[in-house]
Write a protein that binds this DNA or RNA. Structure first.
Lengths: 204, 204
DNA sequence: ATCGGGGTTTAAACTTTGTTTAAAACATCT
DNA sequence: AGATGTTTTAAACAAAGTTTAAACCCCGAT
């Protein structure tokens, strides 16, 4: 039992490292087995397939990195502060974990169907409290009547997509890494401003 | 010569159909050869590799579908009308070609490096005229000082990303296809409003 | 203590990929 | 007709993920 936990963990760790380093597709199962120092077939013994192993690792990474995002969204903060904190934390998270974006893209590409089955991702899109808040605020007349779904999709798009086309942006604007970082840093202010402006009542 | 053009075209057509239907990764070269009614090796004879074939098809699809997008961006329309037309045409295009999104994601995922080498994609991000326009308008005092890059990235993100997470949106909101279409239809108004509001001078 | 059995590990083989090879078939021009 | 260059073919190759069946190991029941 002790030994088995060990083996499973060794596979998991080796695969995580390789996936992050070279991407899923460019990492072979034999390589993982090598790095973990285990027999090739054990990978299929513990995880049913490479795809499955990927899912497990991805779920772990998402869970680990998005806990506080969800906490912010579900908190009792006011709308403005909540949006500002969320955007900032999200951008920080993706800046620190560039592979997460590429992982999500991998899933989106392979089969969108799977995305909705992965609870880790799905929970990222957990807006019940946020939606309620939008609803309440607009009822109270503090903000314009707003579709929570539209607003939330706006927010996700503005945060996430630039990371997906990072190299394109860098290429077209002759940015180096530091400049791209700066570009995203600006967006921490810009995105909340944009979103808040869109829900502000006319003439206030 | 006549026959060869024919073979090349047959491969191209069969592959296009299969790629669109099942995705690149889930389409094998043998399947393509089968559907095209040609020998397996001819695929490598005419296109050097499957990857290359994919590039050719992708370039064709993008070129075919984005001509007018670029035309709009480079036109002499006023800023507001230009943005409205562009957003609408872009959303229409992606609605009609859902596979393009998945193709772009495939490329983004495989290797971002390639994205900047593909002229087809790169030309989609052609903003010199648009950037100039922003610059002029803000100089003339018609709009707030605005970073063209930020604005353009905003626009692309708001348009494209929702298609990438289409199934997630549908799942979370219990949308069917028609309702998602309606959701994107709303965005044709919403996105330009958002962008234009963000560049409007205070108190006008 | 030992035997049997369940969970692990192993080496080897299997299947399916994309790709390459070398010869055959074909077409074209002199 | 024959030489030459292009196109097509069947077969084999390498690398990938996966499966198999036997070996191994540990542990509790007899």
């Amino acid at each position: 039992m002790a030994k088995s936990k060990n083996t499973e963990q060794k596979i998991f760790d080796a695969a995580t490292e390789l996936f992050l380093e070279k991407g899923v597709d460019r990492t072979s199962v034999r390589e993982i087995a090598n790095k973990a120092g285990i027999n090739l077939a054990l990978m299929n013994y513990y995880f049913r397939s490479k795809e499955n192993l990927f899912d497990a690792i991805f779920t772990m990474l998402v869970k680990k990195n998005t806990r506080n995002l969800i906490k912010i969204l579900d908190s009792d903060l006011g709308l403005e502060e909540k949006i500002r904190k969320y955007v900032e934390a999200y951008i920080d998270m993706l800046t620190d974990n560039p592979l997460l974006v590429s992982f999500v893209m991998a899933i989106v590409h392979r089969s969108q169907e799977r995305i909705i089955q992965m609870k880790a991702i799905s929970s990222l899109y957990s807006t019940s409290k946020f939606a309620q808040q939008i609803f309440d605020e607009s009822k109270k007349g503090h903000i314009k009547p707003t579709s929570p779904t539209q607003l939330f999709v706006d927010m996700l798009s503005l945060i996430t997509f630039p990371f997906a086309i990072k190299l394109l942006i860098m290429d077209k604007n002759n940015y180096d890494e530091a400049q791209f970082r700066e570009f995203m840093e600006e967006r921490k202010q810009r995105i909340p401003d944009l979103l808040l402006m869109s829900i502000k009542k006319e003439g206030e």
